[in-house]
Design a protein around this nucleic acid. Structure first.
Ligand SMILES: [Mn+2]
Ligand SMILES: [Mn+2]
Ligand SMILES: [Mn+2]
Ligand SMILES: [Mn+2]
Lengths: 167, 167
DNA sequence: CCAAGAATGTAGCAAAAGCTACATTGATTG
DNA sequence: CAATCAATGTAGCTTTTGCTACATTCTTGG
């Protein structure tokens, strides 16, 4: 509020000529529709969380499948170099999702296990849902890898409803 | 192929003890299932494309709505600062999606218009589909903002089928 | 016209995720 | 038991997307 008030009719570049008179703004509804800016910000936050989810899920899968998660196997499964894995795992350790020691394999902390379980459940629901819609399995699996990080609980619930009834 | 051949039983860290004998690998099926690594790589490519799609779509909306797309309005709509917009628009210009000149508004090139139209169509299909599944509109709109970039043509087709018939 | 202030641009920083090249460690096998 | 070489770690680079702080330009009301 640097300048105290808005100048009224002052406009730049013409634009839509929206009147800015100080009509009292309408009382916000009970459920205000999020602005496009807010929606975009939420999507960006989901992206920041995305790599963490993919990593803990892959780590959990490796542990379930072979007893341990090694950086090389993780790199192979994620399609990146081992260098990238090591650095990202360091971040995940900073964030309390995994633990590891030099030249040892990677372990999930309790919160890492929780995140992995949630991510895996979401991931599989999305994939099954797409398949049940008639999307070829390979495509469904590929699309689910990206979609999984952007489905809210309400959407997952809708997918599960569909699978339970119509699917 | 640095070392010419694989050593057979050599194993590290125990692991699953998978035999590596040089049995001739099975002939690839007609439709080889993509590796998890390949799927992850595709998802990362979609992310790199994502900001471009959101930008050209927002630019197209601003032009449709008010006749021009200014950096400030774009920043407001995307939820970032004008600095971020200016730098990203420079990249999009490098890539031939938009044109702009100092202190002027932003225009879409033909390929920018094409990308915007495709992105918008996908975006709206995803949002309508989620709503038709019973997801509350605000949630559907929010989820669609992230999902839209990860739906293949086959999945979009399945969504449209559902909307045309079951929806 | 002209100054205020909105819009735009620039400088410089950070974090994250990728990479190649090279160094170090450690498990296996001969 | 020692050499080999896979696995891991480190150094240093790039790109992208954010940000704040400050400089410049342009539009417009008075
Ligand atoms: Mn997943
Ligand atoms: Mn994923
Ligand atoms: Mn969109
Ligand atoms: Mn989007």
């Amino acid at each position: 509020m640097k300048h105290g008030f808005v100048k009224g009719r002052r406009v730049w570049h013409g634009g839509a000529m929206v009147s800015r008179k100080s009509s009292p703004r309408p009382a916000p509804r009970a459920t205000a529709a999020p602005s496009s800016a807010a929606i975009q910000k939420r999507t960006r936050q989901q992206h920041a969380q995305e790599r963490a989810e993919d990593y803990v899920e892959a780590i959990a899968d490796l542990i379930a499948g072979s007893g341990e998660a090694r950086a090389t196997d993780l790199a192979k499964s994620l399609g990146v170099t081992h260098v990238t894995v090591i650095r990202t795992v360091q971040r995940l350790q900073r964030e309390g999702l995994v633990t590891t020691q030099p030249y040892r394999s990677i372990f999930l902390t309790p919160s890492g296990r929780k995140l992995a379980a949630e991510a895996k459940a979401r991931h599989e629901t999305v994939a099954e849902f797409l398949e049940s819609l008639g999307v070829p399995q390979a495509t469904a699996r590929a699309d689910a890898e990206g979609i999984e990080h952007h489905v809210s609980p309400a959407t997952i619930a809708a997918f599960r409803r569909f699978l339970a009834t119509g699917g």
